[in-house]
Nucleic acid binder design. Sequence first.
DNA 1: GTTTTACTGTAAAACGTTTAACAGGTGGAC
DNA 2: GTCCACCTGTTAAACGTTTTACAGTAAAAC
Lengths: 361, 361
Amino acid sequence: MTRRRATLKDVADRAGVSIATVSNVFTGRKAVNDELRMRVERAAKELSFQIDRAASQLKSGKARVVGVLVPDLDDTFFTSLISRIELMALEEGYDVIVASSRDDRQLEESRLHTLLGWRPSGIIAVPCSDTVPTILAREVARLPTVLVDRVVPEAATADTVTIDNFEAGQIAGRYLVEMGHSDIALAASHLDIAPIRERVRGAVSIVQELTGKEPVAVALGSNAERGADIFAHWLERHPLPSAVFALTNVTTLAVLTALARQRIDIPDQVSLIAFDDYTWMSARKTALTAIRQPVDDIARLAWERLQLRMEGDASQPRPSILSTTLQVRDSTRRIARAGDEEPAVAEQGSAAAGERQNSIH
Amino acid sequence: MTRRRATLKDVADRAGVSIATVSNVFTGRKAVNDELRMRVERAAKELSFQIDRAASQLKSGKARVVGVLVPDLDDTFFTSLISRIELMALEEGYDVIVASSRDDRQLEESRLHTLLGWRPSGIIAVPCSDTVPTILAREVARLPTVLVDRVVPEAATADTVTIDNFEAGQIAGRYLVEMGHSDIALAASHLDIAPIRERVRGAVSIVQELTGKEPVAVALGSNAERGADIFAHWLERHPLPSAVFALTNVTTLAVLTALARQRIDIPDQVSLIAFDDYTWMSARKTALTAIRQPVDDIARLAWERLQLRMEGDASQPRPSILSTTLQVRDSTRRIARAGDEEPAVAEQGSAAAGERQNSIH
DNA sequence: GTTTTACTGTAAAACGTTTAACAGGTGGAC
DNA sequence: GTCCACCTGTTAAACGTTTTACAGTAAAAC
């Protein structure tokens, strides 16, 4: 019943040819007479034969697998990356092994270690911190590697694909200032992650330059529920800012949750700029103004770089830096500028405080 | 520079032992003298040696990989499934190969075929239609297989883990009727998918039993943006129902998008029950009442069943059916029942029509 | 008619592991 | 003192492919 799996030899015997011929039929690297080919194909189908990848890979040394490592498989940013990579990999005949580091440096190393055991043709990794995992740094000479998102391009010894995080911060900051805001909170995840720091730096620098005021950054972690608690707690001991810029999609969720819980209205009481651009962000009465990362481009670039490397390109590691765009929608209200014709900020602040009082009861 | 990868033999030479000893150190299936063991471990570290899985698997016949096939890697329901499976797999020392069938029967077969090439220890698959892929049906005797979500448990020849879709429809339907609704639209994805049909059947049966009216099902597909267009279009040629029950998280998104676009208020103009329960559903002023699938339990059960099979359990295939729960929040308004004290439904309908008129301009 | 060339098919040697079978040495039981 | 068991370590044979080298045949070139 549980019959042994068919091998090249079984097919060869049944078709009355040598295993080399069968192999040639399957790999196509040598012409095979039509009649024989058909015999082989029929035999293979009858035995539901399937090349054993382990054996194939062992002998040929070529793997047709890429490893993809991300910090969190529940974060839609990373899964949409994976979805796109999986598609391109499929088209080129590669399979994808996924691993999640769960934002844990140690797990990251160990996941990479087992990933490497597959002798993959390449690795696309989103590190969980901005120090490149030692195991990758060591392998980078022999293993095509592309680092995505959470990287400092200048420090990396491999190809990188990142967005211009500083610019992203600036874009959001400038827009908020243009809309009259200067009392701004930055909803960060972790301040020790390079791209987050850059987003903060971008926003802070432009807001400071234009208004003289410094936005305050709050670290909410990378879990939406816990982040909501932290932000709610923060709201209790600080005056309500006139605008919040969320620096990741998870902190966007955290901020929204906290705000909803305290019945603080967007954008009447506080304006919001979200990060990333997902369907749910527009599927609401007040659609969210958001900084959009070009996920498609990120995935495509990462794959293209990886492919080049897998084809043997040994040139200097190259950083690719993509721009984000601001999707203007309804969650950012124009308010009168502080110090302009009327003391709008104060008014806004007190109104908000009143409402909050209300909701905390 | 691009040095050859270290093998057992390299380590053995450097440590001055035989390759069998090195293998024993790594697999631990035979005791090795402490001193030798340490020599081996040091040599391995110095060469950054790593067992070649292809060779190991070829020889031992054991794989320590499971394949996971889902219909869509952009659907959070499936990715949260994967996330949980990956964690449990990790704990047992398995790696995970993911593949997406992109809701395409043909691609599904071909993805499964390549998945099988890995000789995985097991496969967890969410079929894209309710007919079990032929290739799996054929393999099921020798390959541990668990089918999840989109399956008809009675028809499957493998273990299945599903929710009680009929019951889910009933729960939502009953709740809507209790809240006074009888004019109900069902936002389905595809009506040819068994679980969707069951959800429809559940909702229709209970609503019909309690009110005599039959909810109408609309097929919106499995893409939120396109679904929103379809639903918007549907709204234009039908009177606004008093409630919508979305049967998947994607159609939830589609409905929300269409409603937001036409400025139809939830729950004032139309009530909504969402499907699945994600953070973004509560992170809004009117948090969504939703049917919650026990994703954790689904993933856990699927893994446990798979593990049993991988350990050799050859008993009859067993279906596991889990219950959903209704998370009552703010998106479903209580209205006066049709035919009761006041003609609320008609009033509701005309108000909605007016508003819609407005938005279509 | 002989030599080339081209074309197909096969034999056989790896690839890096696991693992059965064996070898050598030590210590205990008798 | 002999025998046996035990403990460690090694040898060598697979596993199912890919691929090189070669053989055989037929067609083309001379």
